[in-house]
Amino acid sequence: MKKKVLYTASTFGHLATFHQPYMRWFAEQGYEVHAAAGGEKKTLAGVSRLIELPFEKKMTAPANFRAAGILARLMREEGYALVSTHTALAAFFTRLALRRAGKSDTVMMNTSHGYLFDAETAGAKRWLLLGAERLCAPVTDYVLTMNRQDERIARQYHLGKAIVQTPGMGVDFSRFAPANAEQRSAARKAFGFSAEQVILVYPAEFSGRKNQRMLIEALPSLPENVGLLLPGRGELLEACVSLAAELGVSGRVVCPGFMSDVEMCYHAADLAVSASRIEGLPFNLMEAMHCALPVVASRIKGHEDLVIDGENGRLFPYNNKEAFVQAVCSLLSVQQRAAMGQAARRSVECYGLPTVYPKLIEIYGSALAGHSSQ
């Protein structure tokens, strides 16, 4: 009888975007791979069974506890050799389910794509989120972290039996290369930008955490030839469009919605920016950097692991519009952007899938070897 592996996440889309090479690897090793998540179902490489879960974004929503009940029954019935859980909400309820089901000899591996708190998080929220992680620590065999701050948090509070720092899940950089003159011209024309404009790009979900609002509010203080490209969707998209109109910068802000061909956005841009409050190891910045774009980003965990201030980009204090404007203005020179862009491209090569994949496979193999010896 085949041994089984379960992957969980808040959405099937997350699993499809980040984890298919690894699910395929488990299947190639002879494991039966199941995936449980919310959202629209996706075909996943190597996965033989998809289980729909009623996850909702609000942590305390009754539907999330129903999802934990479904997972607990699934774990009792299937007896998984390993459960690999991803995204903060799914990770909590997956581990809560394992507590209910009785851990047995299942290996629980929590890959933290970024704890939703840090040292700057307000007390009550921080202790609630940290408390949830500490509650789950006794059933967590491995915590895989992606940035130095999260590794320190996991070690300080003993959030798993083994804490392993990783370079993320690996980015497939095959689509993300510096634009040639023809690609740049075509991309700019598609978005309505002129050759003289300096374009800032920030592909992200429109949310309070991603903080597109600050970028729009800063735009009137930047030279008039600076434009802002904001691909993505989310609940704050319309509010951001309205804000641009109120500030009189609608002509300088383009919000094209979700784009599957996001590389076109990087080809149109001169700088990648991020105003985010908290991150794990953001794919959008790594993709942009591999396209030889320097970065202007908030000084937070995740960003600090990627951006060396003054070498491949600039860091500014979170939500500080004046510092953001100064950082962008310091990179208005084409020559300086070119030099920093090349440094940015070199610095993210270590996060590419060919480099990261064997490292994670070694971790998975070691965890499963330990399980088989029990």
Rank of each mutant, 00 (worst) to 15 (best):
Y142W: 01
A367Q: 12
T17R: 07
H14G: 01
M109Y: 09
A218I: 03
P354E: 02
E78L: 05
Y318Q: 09
L200V: 13
N319D: 12
G302P: 05
N64G: 04
Q374S: 06
L82S: 10
E246G: 07
R73C: 06
A272M: 09
G302L: 02
T60L: 10
M259N: 12
E40V: 14
L53E: 08
Q183M: 03
E182Q: 13
A36S: 04
N147F: 03
Q335E: 13
A27S: 11
P220S: 03
L6S: 06
G131W: 00
H158I: 00
K3M: 01
S194P: 04
R209Q: 00
V83G: 05
A344W: 13
A275H: 00
E287A: 00
V325L: 01
E56Q: 12
A323G: 01
K58D: 03
G365L: 03
P178A: 01
G248M: 09
P203L: 00
V198T: 15
A245T: 15
F93Q: 06
P223H: 14
A37Q: 11
A292Q: 02
A37D: 07
R155E: 09
N180S: 03
A101H: 09
A67V: 06
K3H: 12
K41P: 07
M1N: 12
A9S: 11
R134I: 01
G302M: 03
Q149E: 12
K161D: 01
M340F: 13
C255R: 12
R95S: 03
A162T: 15
L285I: 12
G30R: 10
M75K: 15
F324S: 04
V307Q: 03
L200F: 09
I300T: 11
E235K: 15
R24H: 09
R95N: 00
L128Y: 05
L331R: 10
D305V: 09
V307W: 06
Y266K: 07
V143E: 06
Q374G: 09
F26Y: 04
A124W: 14
P358W: 03
F26E: 07
K301Y: 13
H86F: 02
T94E: 08
R76K: 15
F193K: 07
I163P: 11
Q374K: 13
Q165F: 14
C240H: 08
G168E: 04
G313W: 05
G227C: 12
R152Y: 10
L219N: 08
L332T: 11
Y31P: 07
L82C: 12
A81D: 09
